[in-house]
């Protein structure tokens, strides 16, 4: 093998090597990350569902009652008052129910919040149909302002039989600094991009 041939072959290895590196970098951003969300969405893991569904005309299962617990909590830096108006509800699968959460901005600043839902057990996520939810959008509140935030949901009667209690937790985050712009939209966009 001549020196020139070796040189050419080495050059090829460098090119393939750099190609692999670039490929893997893109792979992280555009394959691994969306795959994570795809799997979460598909299985319901993490119990976070940000997208609205259509109300379905489902047969109401009169013989079954599912307990739904509503929990509201603040991320540590979030000063708002935030609580569910009702901490628990017994629901028949198929029924359309509406509940409200109360939030008040007690600070002297205008702020924007984002509620992040998480349903437990996560296996129920894809059977818990949210047609309207304050978590679909960020929630601005002027200083001292308060709001009743609605959630309309129904439970798919196909919900696995072993699920008898559902806990829906909303964590309220302060997104004033990044609101409206990059933060939320960047990710949402990617979520839709799947």
């Amino acid at each position: 093998m001549s020196a020139e041939q070796t040189r050419q072959k080495n050059r090829n290895v460098v090119l393939y090597g750099i190609g692999t590196v670039v490929f893997m970098l893109l792979f992280v951003f555009f394959v691994l990350r969306p795959m994570y969300y795809l799997i979460c969405e598909w299985t319901g893991i993490t119990g976070s569902q940000f997208e609205a569904s259509e109300t379905k005309n489902l047969a109401i299962d009169e013989n079954r009652a599912v307990k739904v617990q509503f929990l509201a909590m603040n991320n540590a830096t979030m000063p708002w008052q935030f609580q569910p108006e009702q901490s628990q509800l017994t629901v028949k699968p198929g029924e359309v129910k509406q509940v409200y959460f109360y939030a008040k901005n007690n600070t002297t600043n205008d702020m924007v919040a984002q509620a992040v839902p998480s349903l437990s057990p996560f296996e129920a996520t894809n059977y818990f149909i949210k047609t309207e939810c304050f978590c679909f959008n960020s929630q601005p509140l002027a200083a001292g302002e308060s709001v009743r935030m609605g959630l309309v949901f129904q439970i798919d009667p196909d919900l696995p039989a072993w699920v008898k209690t559902l806990s829906l937790t909303y964590t309220l985050f302060d997104i004033t600094d990044s609101a409206g712009a990059t933060a939320a939209s960047f990710n949402r966009l990617a979520l839709h991009n799947l």
Binding site: T46, G47, S48, V116, S118, S120, T171
Partner: peptide
Amino acid sequence: DAIPGIVNE
């Protein structure tokens, strides 16, 4: 694990 924004059971 207790993870911000995610509820575990």
